[in-house]
Simulated assay, not measured.
Amino acid sequence: MTTARDIMHVGAECVRTDQSAADASRIMAEQKVGALPICGPDDKIKGVVTDRDVVVKVVAKGRGAGTFPAGDLNQSEAVTIGADDSAEQAMSTMMQHQVRRLPVIDSGELVGMITLADVARSVSNPQTGQLVEALSID
């Protein structure tokens, strides 16, 4: 069985809830990624912020990215996957919650991220089509 640990990108970095949207953007640029988990003072994942979130919720509304809290960009619930869960479970979770990226946790700690492309490479072609179709609905 292929697990989330097998297909994830290791070394994911959090942006903290008390950091700014500009900090999140800077970290994404440095890491060459389009999304970051948002972690609170308790180191628990509160959500995920994407580069699109910063553009739509901050820049397009004329808000200052340097003062807008990254913690205000998280979703209503943090969707994660366990490191030892199957790649199929990751796909199912992504479809159920309509997300393209999943933080991977092990014993409550962030250990990596899985993207739509990671899952698509690891599952069969018919399943990949189902996943892409499910996540393409707006």
Rank of each mutant, 00 (worst) to 15 (best):
Ser107Cys: 08
Asp118Arg: 07
Gln89Met: 13
Asn74Trp: 13
Pro69Met: 00
Gly34Val: 00
Leu36Cys: 03
Gln98Trp: 10
Ile45Pro: 03
Arg16Ile: 06
Phe68Ile: 01
Asp23Glu: 11
Met1Asn: 15
Asn74Leu: 11
Ser76Cys: 09
Ser20Ile: 01
Ser92His: 13
Val104Asn: 08
Gln96Gly: 10
Val55Ala: 11
Leu36Ser: 03
Ala90Asp: 04
Ala35Cys: 12
Met94Thr: 07
Met8Cys: 08
Arg26Asn: 11
Phe68Ser: 00
Asp23Asn: 10
His9Glu: 12
Thr67Ala: 13
Glu109Asp: 14
Thr80Met: 13
Gln89Ala: 14
Val54Trp: 01
Pro69His: 05
Asp72Ser: 13
Glu13Ala: 14
Met1Gly: 15
Val15Gln: 00
Ile7Tyr: 07
Val99Gly: 08
Arg16Tyr: 13
Val55Asn: 02
Gly108Ile: 04
Arg5Ala: 12
Gly40Ala: 09
Met1Lys: 14
Thr17Lys: 10
Asp138Gln: 13
Met1Tyr: 09
Ser107His: 14
Glu13Gln: 15
Gly11Asn: 06
Gly62Trp: 02
Thr115Pro: 08
Thr2Pro: 12
Gln75Asp: 14
Ala65Pro: 12
Thr3Leu: 14
Pro41Glu: 15
Pro103Thr: 03
Lys57Val: 04
Gly62Ile: 00
Arg52Val: 03
Gln98Ile: 10
Ala65Leu: 05
Thr2Val: 15
His9Ile: 12
Val99Leu: 04
Pro103His: 01
Ile27Tyr: 05
Leu36Met: 06
Lys32Asn: 15
Asp85Glu: 15
Ile114Gln: 07
Arg63His: 15
Val15Asp: 01
Gly64Ile: 08
Ile105Gly: 06
Gln31Trp: 00
Arg63Met: 12
Pro69Ser: 02
Ile114Trp: 07
Gly112Cys: 06
Val119Cys: 08
Val59Asn: 04
Arg100Tyr: 05
Gln127Ser: 13
Cys39Val: 06
Thr3Asn: 09
Ser122Leu: 09
Leu102Lys: 07
Glu30Cys: 10
Ile137Ala: 15
Ala70Leu: 06
Ala24Phe: 03
Gly47Val: 02
Glu13Tyr: 08
Val58Lys: 01
Val55Glu: 03
Lys61Cys: 06
Met28Tyr: 02
Thr80Tyr: 11
Pro41Thr: 13
Ile81Ala: 04
Gln19Cys: 04
Gln89Arg: 13
Pro69Trp: 00
Gln96Cys: 07
Glu13Gly: 09
Ala134Arg: 09
Thr50Gly: 01
Val111Gln: 02
Ala29Gln: 14
Val59Thr: 10
Asp118Leu: 08
Ser92Tyr: 10
Thr67Cys: 05
Met91Thr: 04
Glu133His: 15
Cys14Ser: 06
Thr2Asn: 11
Ser92Gly: 05
Val58Ser: 01
Lys44Gly: 11
Ala120Asp: 07
Leu135Lys: 09
Leu116Asp: 06
Ala83Asp: 10
Glu30Pro: 08
Arg52His: 02
Thr80Val: 15
Ile114Val: 15
